[in-house]
Amino acid sequence: MVNRGQLKAIWAFYKHYSVSSILFTLFCAWLFWEYDALFQIMFIKLATGWLIWYFIISFHSQKLFYYYNLHVHKRTLWGGYFFIDFFVLFFILVTIRFLK
């Protein structure tokens, strides 16, 4: 079970590394607005998600100890990160669908 402190840590982790993923999400939103390309959007999000994960574990692995020291399991940390990321994407896509 994830406690409040761990949730705060996951949120801090997402905020810290969110810039690139939000840029990719905005690109996906544009694709959806222009072309309705849902399959391509999912592929781009998965591929860029893997890239972000690879970048962080390759070049920022020491920084992850901050979250480990708050007793957040690796699975929970990354699961939380991608949950928020996909939730933001889903929210934007639904909003676009509504506006169109």
Binding site: Q62, K63, F65, Y66, Y68, H71, H73, K74, T76
Partner: peptide
């Protein structure tokens, strides 16, 4: 995964880890 057990153990890595 001892690090994930609340209140058990923490670890100072060699390099800076604070955001």
């Amino acid at each position: 995964a001892s690090y994930a057990k609340a209140g058990l153990v923490n670890y100072l890595p060699q390099n800076s880890f604070l955001p």
